[in-house]
């Protein structure tokens, strides 16, 4: 075997695998979404979902969730990453604890927060123990859509801030500390250093983190199923319902296309807004 062939032989299995299980189904989603069950192009599947009473609420809920959760997580993660970078003792332990939710699925996170927020849950119990309420209150029902929304926001922030944290911590680690020292010598205080040194140099990491996290926010599914049930439709949940409960693969694929297009738009948006010219990178 010639030396030049080695790398191709080595990547071949994963290339074939990705072609079969990423590229092909990816094209197939579009094919399913735009073709009739008897063949032929159609937009009928999109009409089906657009006229469904759950479509607009699910779109609104998904976008709203992303809009509230992602910025909150970003601020929190930046704060946590800065704290980690200032820590000496116990840095590894704190980082370990803070990243635990990384390994927790949104299903498990939903269950955890259900245990807190349920009618029989710990938060009600706490409020009772300290004498604020006299009997169990039901928060998570259809009369309190904002409570359900808030519960999901909390559960999502709790679960998925860790991934941003990891990306930002490693990004901060790449910034040489001489830059801070130089800024400090020229009279920049901590606040100025954050805005003039850390954040600008962190832009590539912020970009990665935001793209990844926003896409995951569009995929929000199990948390919502548990905490909101049918009171809180989201895109991914609707895709699941159409595929599984209504057995309509075309409509499910149409939902998938909507989610894919949203993901693409946001990815492009972040790539554009947070663009860093190659020469200006560390």
């Amino acid at each position: 075997m010639s030396k030049k062939a080695y790398p191709y032989v080595l990547i071949m299995p994963s290339v074939l695998f990705l072609l079969a299980f990423f590229v092909y189904p990816f094209l197939q989603v579009f094919a399913q979404a735009f073709t009739h069950s008897e063949g032929g192009l159609t937009i009928a599947h999109f009409e089906t979902i657009f006229y469904d009473f759950n479509f607009l609420p699910s779109l609104k809920n998904t976008l709203l969730l992303a809009l509230v959760v992602v910025p909150a997580q970003l601020c929190l993660a930046i704060g946590m990453a800065l704290m980690i970078s200032k820590m000496e003792k116990g840095r590894d332990t704190v980082l370990y604890v803070w990243t635990i939710p990384l390994g927790i699925s949104d299903l498990a996170a939903g269950i955890i927060w259900l245990g807190l927020l349920d009618q029989n849950g710990f938060i009600n119990s706490f409020l009772f123990h300290v004498g604020i309420i006299d009997e169990a209150q039901s928060w998570l029902n259809y009369q309190n859509p904002w409570a359900i929304f808030a519960a999901i926001v909390f559960a999502e922030i709790w679960r998925a801030t860790a991934i941003l944290l990891v990306i930002l911590v490693s990004g901060i680690g790449l910034i040489p500390k001489e830059y801070y020292e130089a800024a400090e010598i020229f009279g920049a205080n901590a606040w100025v250093r954050l805005w003039k040194v850390t954040l600008p140099l962190l832009r590539p990491s912020l970009q990665t983190a935001l793209i990844l996290r926003t896409l995951l926010a569009f995929e929000v599914f199990a948390v919502v199923m548990i905490l909101g049930g049918s009171n809180m439709p989201v895109l991914m949940g609707e895709a699941y319902n159409w595929a599984f409960s209504y057995r309509d693969a075309g409509a499910a694929a149409a939902y998938a296309v909507v989610i894919l297009v949203l993901s693409l738009l946001f990815t492009l948006f972040y790539l554009r807004v947070l663009r860093v010219p190659k020469e200006a990178q560390i």
Partner: peptide, 16 residues
């Protein structure tokens, strides 16, 4: 692959 909601690909794959 990371810029796409991969679990969605389960939908066409279910059919295949």
């Amino acid at each position: 692959t990371r810029a796409f909601p991969m679990p969605l690909l389960a939908l066409p794959l279910a059919v295949i």
